[in-house]
Write a protein that binds this DNA or RNA. Structure first.
Length: 622
DNA sequence: AGCACGCCGACT
DNA sequence: GTCGGCGTGCTC
C-alpha cells in the first residue's frame, strides 16, 4: 500500500493570523495528533512551539518543512476550550495561537490526564442563564449555597476575584466550609500553577478560587462560574488578547451549558443595563435596597485655605474615632508628595523626558513619572530659566501622611500605596485588630471591604480627582467606590467626602437606581457604551509624523467601510516611554460586523514601523 | 514576537 | 575602509 503523507497546520503565539503548514513525518503517525496539541517546528532560523490546529492529507502549496518533534503526548484542550479560543480570537481580534496560548500557557509537556470520575453527559436542552446577583450582606451564604448545590451534582465551581489580595478571605471561608478547593493566581510558580491545573483537570477539587486566567480552568464538568465584584476593571486583560473575564465566562457558560453569576452590590453600568433589559436575570437579597446616602459631604470652598486637606468636620470625626480606639482610613487618590513642580518665575513644569507628563515630587527629593516609572533627582533651580522658586503643587499620599503626623502627633500613622510594598492589603485588617494602626493613609489599593469594615472613619480627601479623570466612566467608578464604602461600613462608622463640587449628581442621587438612570441618560446623549460598542485602534511609534500618517491611512480605510468612528487623534497621554500615541475609536450600534471590518482594515495595515493594536470593548481610553 | 538583512554615520 | 545603530520584512 502506498504511504500517504500527512500535513498539519500550526498556529503560533505570535501576532500573525495565518497558519503554517508542515509535513508530519510517518514516525509520528502511529500516535493520533489531536488539535491543540503542541509540536516543535523549524520557523525561520529557530525552532519554536506551536499548536496543531488542522490536519490534511492534501499537500498545501509551497515549500514545506517537517515537524521536528511532538511536544505534548495529547491535547490539553477540551473541545469546548478549543472553541472558546476560536471565539476569543474572532471577538478580540488576535491570532488563534495567541488565544490558545492564553488558555494553556504552560511550558510543560502535557500527557493525557483522565478525570477521577466520568462526567455525566450534558443536558443540552436546557439553556443556562447569566445572573446579576446583588447579595447585600449575604454574599458568602449565597456562594456557599451554589457550591453545595453543585457538589450534590458532582459539578465543579469556579470563583473569580479581581486581585490576589482578595483571595485570603475566600481561602479562609472555604477551609471553614471544608470544601476541597484549589487556589490559582499569577504569584504561584509556573510549576505550582501547572500542578493546580492538572489537579483541576482530574477533578480533584470541587471548587477553585483565583484571578483572571482561572476562567480557563480545565474542570471536567463545570457547574457554574461566580464572578465577585464583576464591575472591577481588573477583569480586563491588559495584554493581547485584551479579553474581559465576564464576557469570556459568559461565552464559556454558553458552550458548556452552565450559569454564570455576576456577584456585586455596585454593578457596572453595562451589566446593570443588561439586567434592566432582561438579558441577564437579577437576584436581589432583601436587605439590598439600602440607600447610598449614608455619607457626609464637606464643601471645601467653604473651608479655610489651611484646612483643605483636613476640613474641620474631618478633624472632629477623626478625633472621635481615635477616642473610641477605632482606626481612621484616609483615601488619597494619588501617590507621591506633590503632584508636580512648577517654576514660579517662568511657569514651566518639570516633565518626564519619555512621556512629557508632569513628574510628581516624592519624598527625599525624587521626581517620579507615574506613567513609565522614570526617576531623577529633583532640581534645585529651574532647568528652563534658572529661577530658584520651584513650587510643589498639589499633594499625594506622602504629603497627607506627613500632615497627619503633624496634626495627630500621638497617633500611629501608616501609609499604604504602590511605593510601600512592606505589607499586603490583606495583612492590614489583622494589624488593625492587633491595634497597631490608628490612621491609615493610602490609595485605591486600601479600599477593600475587610479594611473598611473595621474602620471608624473613612474619608475621601478629594473626590474631584476621581471625577475629573480623563475617562467617561470616571463618575461611574466614583459611584461604585462610594457605594462600596458606605455598604461595607459598620453602622456606627462614617464616610466623609471632601469636594469642591458638593452638588455633583454622584453625591445627590439618593438610590442606586437613580444614579444608574441618570448616568444612562448621559451615556445615551453622548453615544457612549452601553448604547454603542466601541473598538479602539491604538497606534504607537517613535516618529510622530509616521504615527500620524499611519493613523490617517487607517482612517481612510475605515471610511470606505461606512462606519462611524472618532479620530484619528492623539491619545490623552500622547507620549508614553518615548512613543507617540494616536487612536481611532470605532462606534457601532450593533448592526455591522465589526470583527470582519477590523480584519479587512488590519490586513493591509500590518506593515511598517508603527505598532497597531486593537482593543475590543476598551475600558481605558488613555 | 524574533531574527536576518540592509543601509547610513563615526571610529581604528 | 568596517563596526554597529535600528528600520523593514519574513517566517510553512
Amino acid at each position: 500500500m502506498r504511504e500517504t503523507k500527512t500535513y498539519v497546520a500550526v498556529a503560533f503565539n505570535l501576532p500573525v493570523e495565518k497558519f503554517f503548514w508542515y509535513i508530519l513525518p510517518s514516525r509520528f503517525k502511529r500516535r493520533l495528533i489531536k488539535r491543540g496539541q503542541r509540536v516543535v517546528v523549524p520557523f525561520g532560523s529557530r525552532q519554536i512551539l506551536g499548536f496543531v490546529v488542522e490536519e490534511s492529507s492534501r499537500r498545501p502549496q509551497g515549500e514545506l518543512k517537517e515537524v521536528r518533534d511532538l511536544f505534548d503526548r495529547s491535547s490539553p484542550f477540551s473541545e469546548t476550550l478549543f472553541q472558546l479560543a476560536r471565539w476569543i480570537s474572532d471577538y478580540y481580534s488576535c491570532s488563534l495561537g495567541q488565544a490558545l496560548h492564553s488558555i494553556f500557557p504552560f511550558s510543560f509537556p502535557y500527557k493525557e490526564e483522565k478525570p477521577l470520575f466520568n462526567p455525566p453527559s450534558r443536558d443540552s436542552l436546557k439553556r443556562e442563564e447569566v445572573y446579576l446577583v446583588k447579595p447585600g450582606k449575604n454574599k458568602f451564604d449565597f456562594i456557599l449555597s451554589v457550591i453545595k448545590d453543585n457538589k450534590e451534582l458532582q459539578k465543579q465551581v469556579i470563583i473569580l476575584v479581581p486581585e490576589i489580595s482578595l483571595l485570603a478571605t475566600f481561602q479562609e471561608k472555604l477551609e471553614r466550609w471544608k470544601v476541597k478547593a484549589g487556589i490559582f493566581h499569577s504569584r504561584l510558580s509556573p510549576k505550582q500553577r501547572y500542578y493546580c491545573w492538572l489537579a483541576m483537570k482530574k477533578g480533584e477539587f470541587d471548587v477553585a478560587v483565583g484571578t483572571r486566567s482561572l476562567v480557563f480552568a480545565p474542570f471536567p464538568d463545570i457547574g457554574s462560574i461566580l464572578i465577585d465584584e464583576e464591575e472591577s476593571t481588573d477583569y480586563k486583560q491588559k495584554e493581547t488578547p485584551k479579553y474581559n473575564v465576564c464576557q469570556v465566562a459568559i461565552k464559556r457558560g454558553e458552550l458548556e451549558n452552565f450559569p454564570v453569576y455576576l456577584v456585586t452590590n455596585s454593578p457596572s453600568l453595562e451589566s446593570w443595563y443588561r439586567a434592566k433589559k432582561k438579558i441577564y436575570r437579577t437576584i436581589t437579597f432583601s436587605n439590598n435596597e439600602k440607600e447610598i446616602s449614608s455619607f457626609k459631604v464637606v464643601d471645601l470652598k467653604k473651608e479655610k485655605k489651611e484646612n483643605r486637606i483636613f476640613s474641620s468636620i474631618l478633624r472632629e470625626e477623626m478625633k472621635k474615632a481615635l477616642k473610641r480606639k477605632l482606626p481612621v482610613l484616609l483615601f488619597v487618590p494619588r501617590r507621591g508628595y506633590a503632584n508636580f513642580l512648577l517654576c514660579d518665575d517662568c511657569g514651566e513644569v518639570i516633565r518626564c523626558p519619555n512621556c512629557n507628563t508632569g513628574l510628581s515630587f516624592h519624598i527625599r527629593g525624587e521626581m517620579v513619572c507615574h506613567l513609565c516609572g522614570f526617576r531623577e533627582k529633583a532640581p534645585k533651580v529651574c532647568p528652563f530659566c534658572g529661577g530658584r522658586n520651584l513650587k510643589k503643587v498639589g499633594w499625594g499620599t506622602q504629603r497627607v501622611e506627613l500632615e497627619t503626623r503633624r496634626i495627630f502627633p500621638e497617633a500611629r500613622v501608616e501609609r499604604f500605596d504602590f511605593d510601600t510594598f512592606k505589607s499586603s492589603p490583606h495583612l492590614i485588617p489583622s494589624k488593625i485588630r492587633e491595634e497597631k494602626i490608628d490612621i491609615l493613609v493610602g490609595t485605591q489599593l486600601l479600599m477593600k471591604e475587610e479594611i473598611i469594615s473595621v474602620s471608624g472613619v473613612v474619608a475621601i480627601i478629594l473626590l474631584d480627582v476621581l471625577l475629573n479623570l480623563p475617562d467617561f466612566r470616571a463618575t461611574e467608578h466614583a459611584f461604585q467606590l462610594l457605594n462600596k464604602i458606605s455598604r461595607s461600613l459598620n453602622k456606627n462608622s462614617s464616610l466623609i467626602v471632601q469636594t469642591y463640587n458638593p452638588s455633583h449628581y454622584v453625591l445627590s442621587t439618593k438610590t442606586c437606581e437613580d444614579f444608574y438612570l441618570k448616568e444612562l441618560e448621559i451615556r445615551k446623549t453622548l453615544r457612549y457604551p452601553p448604547f454603542q460598542r466601541w473598538i479602539r485602534f491604538l497606534l504607537e511609534g517613535r516618529v510622530k509624523s509616521k504615527v500620524k500618517d499611519r493613523s490617517e491611512e487607517i482612517a481612510r480605510e475605515i471610511r470606505k467601510e461606512n462606519i462611524d468612528f472618532l479620530g484619528p487623534s492623539p491619545c490623552p497621554f500622547s507620549r508614553i516611554k518615548g512613543k507617540y500615541r494616536y487612536h481611532i475609536i470605532l462606534r457601532d450600534d450593533g448592526l455591522s460586523d465589526l470583527q470582519q471590518i477590523i480584519k479587512r482594515v488590519n490586513l493591509g495595515m500590518m506593515k511598517g514601523s508603527v505598532k497597531v493594536g486593537v482593543d475590543v470593548d476598551p475600558l481605558f481610553i488613555v
